[in-house]
Design a protein around this nucleic acid. Structure first.
Lengths: 108, 108
DNA sequence: GGTTGATATCAACGAGTATCGATGTAATGC
DNA sequence: GCATTACATCGATACTCGTTGATATCAACC
């Protein structure tokens, strides 16, 4: 059993999927350093504005980034504990030393 | 700057992609507890044998699991530091408190 | 009010990929 | 040798999803 209540596998997989796209990952990593608005991210990534906006939408829907409108601009930042579940899961996985063989060969 | 040399974004994204499929994630999480062979994973997940085998192939190619053939069976286990890069990246992301706004609005 | 610029939405296209049935391979047991 | 079992590979299909151009929205500025 994991230390805490683990989210359903599908939900956790969806979290990892957020970081599985190079562009989205680049956006998230950039937002680690500073808040940025869409135009900055377009410049930074070299992707089209619609593409960046599309990924920002996904990240917003997932709750890992938040956008604050300020005039024509929208400043994006990472939400505080958006990656807690992933971090916990990975910590568990990463600490595996040498798993035992508990089961007999298949009953099938 | 990150603490160590960060792998290229695309490579890191590919790592996360490994955990972005519910079935693959389920397999990895199961292997955290104990070594298992394909048939066990088929029973555990309820997926078809070919599907499980397909995902094990991907995990093997990526180097995050290793299979040891033993007679008709193949025991799979997680490799030791397969998730180190992801763990480091997530730790960096997770520790973000409140990123500043360093840039002026766009030069556009 | 009209124009400009930042951003979001939509529809369509294309590439990647998960699933699955059929098949191949290799090891065990009779 | 032959049947059975565990596992892998292959080809086809279906579906997800990233990208993009067109378009809409909304604020700032003249």
């Amino acid at each position: 059993m994991p230390s805490a209540v683990r989210p359903p596998t599908a939900e956790l997989a969806a979290q990892f999927a957020l970081l599985s796209d190079p562009l989205r990952l680049q956006i998230v990593l950039a937002l680690t350093e500073e808040q940025l608005c869409t135009c900055h991210l377009v410049d930074l990534t070299g992707a089209k504005q619609t593409t960046v906006s599309h990924h920002l939408r996904q990240l917003r829907d997932a709750g890992v980034v938040a956008g604050e409108a300020e005039g024509r601009f929208t400043w994006y930042r990472l939400t505080s504990d958006a990656f807690a579940a992933m971090l916990e899961a990975l910590t568990g996985i990463g600490s595996v030393e040498d798993a035992p063989r508990l089961r007999p060969t298949c009953v099938g």
